[in-house]
Design a protein around this nucleic acid. Structure first.
Length: 479
RNA sequence: GGCGCAUUCGUCUAGGGGUUUAGGACGCUGCCCUCUCAAGGCAGAGAUCACCGGUUCGAAUCCGGUAUGCGCUACCA
């Protein structure tokens, strides 16, 4: 019988979660779902100074956007301060921790000196051996202490990591870290251990940056007489400069990707592949496939650089896989937002549905859709006559336009096929290649040199608008 | 400075002693398709598997050292 899997995502509420946080959440969620376990959301709001109002809501929205549903929580550490205090006191009582009255100023000076002497910085254990009387008198003076853990001076602590194996730390390199701050809040180390224990967390999946503090956690578990969970330290996600992803890098927050028109399912697929792989070739996988196959054994040990270009490609794959209806629906908010202000809102959704199939395979993100479709909406096309002529001369352009207008005018049905049937012969007669010939019409109708297929575009645009645009182009040359 | 982790094409990765002339993907280049742009198809360039030693009949794969990168080194998480 193995322990039931219970994992948690435990961000601190400091703003939009960035890609690294989200990847951690994702792996925890995948691990829980694969093992029919429980995924818990816990908010680590023990740093009053860094706490940002509304951040919890933002975190929850981000998880929801990606479809990472949690089974318990959100649990707030700030609601459980008494619990942490209780264990801090207990540890002091048992001689496993002590009160420290050193001022921030003293600590600062101490650190500077250590740095200057090229010594490893760390608390010098000044208060470690205060007598009970000394503590009492400092207390009555009104001094507010922190509680520090009494790290063993010698011996080793072994961390067993599911991804990295056994990692051995010399206890002499561990300092007496703070458990309870002077404002009564616990540090991460204390709160984390107490909560993981109380919530019966079975596996701690977190970023590699935590590996160095894990021996402290192991020591704490043992001091409290608790069984530690299993640890798995996930490889970090790096910026293009190979340093830890942070605000210095562009677009690190998850909401930026939402705003840029990335699909959550593409995001999930892509992030899954940052540090995990199924085999030597499978890349596009449904959520179900990923859940079915996810395992810690296949998590890589090496940090991964976040590569937007590949995300773009994958997002394009997902966009093309959408059914047209869905694509139109998901594009709508981006179109509403991205079309020039002069165009009437709300945007005609039936019209957009007709346009959608013409641009779906041309968009890599939903945010690109407005630029792809705007000529369907604007009243007056902006382009210069040079563009209209392309490599042809004025006479040729005039002839192409007038012949096309005459031909289309006689057409009964304004449909892609009949238009093409009627216009194609003109190309042959002109002695030109189809490219340049259609190029003139394309610019006349769309105002650009690259567009969806011409006749399909004209069909959707409608007879009236198409003819009007062709006429407008012709009148540039004949006034 | 100390401690820890890591090191396979530019990037994400497969590989876990012989099946490897190191596979796939993104990106890049070329060709095909083609009314343009995409999409799609095909092809190509791109990795002395960080380096040096060792183990072994045989090493990208195991061991040691070195180098480099990154992380931690707070009353932040």
């Amino acid at each position: 019988m193995s322990v039931p899997v219970r994992v948690r995502f435990a961000p601190s509420p400091t703003g939009y979660p960035h890609l690294g946080n989200i990847r951690t959440a994702l792996f925890n969620w995948l691990f829980a779902r694969h093992n029919n376990g429980v995924f818990i959301l816990r908010i680590e709001d023990t740093d009053v100074a860094r706490k940002v109002e509304g951040a919890t809501e933002i975190i929850m929205e981000s998880l929801q956007w990606l479809g990472l549903d949690w089974d318990e929580g959100p649990v707030f550490q700030s609601d459980r301060l008494d619990l942490y205090k209780m264990y801090a006191r207990e540890l002091v009582k048992e001689g496993r921790a002590y009160y420290c009255f050193c001022s921030p100023e003293r600590l600062e000076v101490m650190r500077k000196e250590q740095m200057m002497r090229k010594q490893p910085p760390g608390y010098d254990r000044h208060c470690r051996d205060l007598t009970e009387q000394q503590v009492d008198s400092l207390m009555t003076e009104g001094k507010v202490p922190v509680v520090r853990f009494k790290s063993p001076l010698k011996g080793q602590t072994v961390v067993t990591d599911l991804i990295r194996g056994e990692v051995v730390f010399e206890n002499s390199t561990l300092d007496d870290f703070v458990l309870l701050k002077s404002d009564g809040y616990p540090t991460y180390h204390l709160a984390n251990i107490v909560d993981d224990h109380y919530m019966n967390i079975s596996h701690v999946l977190r970023a590699e940056e935590w590996l160095s503090s894990t021996p402290r956690h192991v020591l704490l578990y043992s001091a409290l007489g608790w069984q530690p969970p299993q640890f798995a330290h996930l490889p970090m996600i790096l910026g293009p400069d190979k340093s830890k992803l942070s605000k210095r890098h562009s677009a690190t927050a998850i909401n930026e990707y939402q705003n840029q028109g990335y699909l959550p399912e593409a995001m999930v697929n892509f992030l899954t592949l940052l540090g995990w792989s199924l085999d030597d070739k499978t890349e596009i996988m449904s959520r179900e496939e990923i859940i079915k196959n996810f395992s810690i054994e296949r998590v890589s040990r090496t940090a991964a650089v976040f590569n937007v270009a590949k995300l773009e490609w994958m997002n394009g794959m997902y966009i093309r896989a959408l059914n047209v209806e869905d694509f139109a629906k998901r594009s709508l908010p981006f179109v509403e937002q991205g079309l020039p202000p002069g165009i009437k809102r709300p945007v005609d959704t039936d019209y957009l549905r007709l346009i959608a199939p013409l641009v779906q395979e041309r968009a890599r993100t939903l945010a690109e859709v407005p630029q792809l479709v705007d000529f369907f909406f604007v009243n007056e096309l902006q382009y210069d006559s040079e563009m209209l002529m392309g490599k042809l001369d004025k006479g040729q352009a005039v002839s192409i336009l007038s012949q096309t207008i005459d031909t289309l005018k006689k057409l009964d049905a304004w449909e892609t096929e009949s238009m093409e049937e009627a216009v194609r012969p003109l190309v042959a007669e002109s002695g030109l290649k189809a490219g340049p010939f259609f190029g003139v019409i394309r610019v006349a109708v769309t105002g650009r040199t690259a567009s969806p297929p011409l006749f399909q575009t004209m069909e959707v645009l409608g007879r009236e608008r198409s003819m009007q645009r062709l006429g407008a182009a012709l009148s540039r040359f004949i006034s």
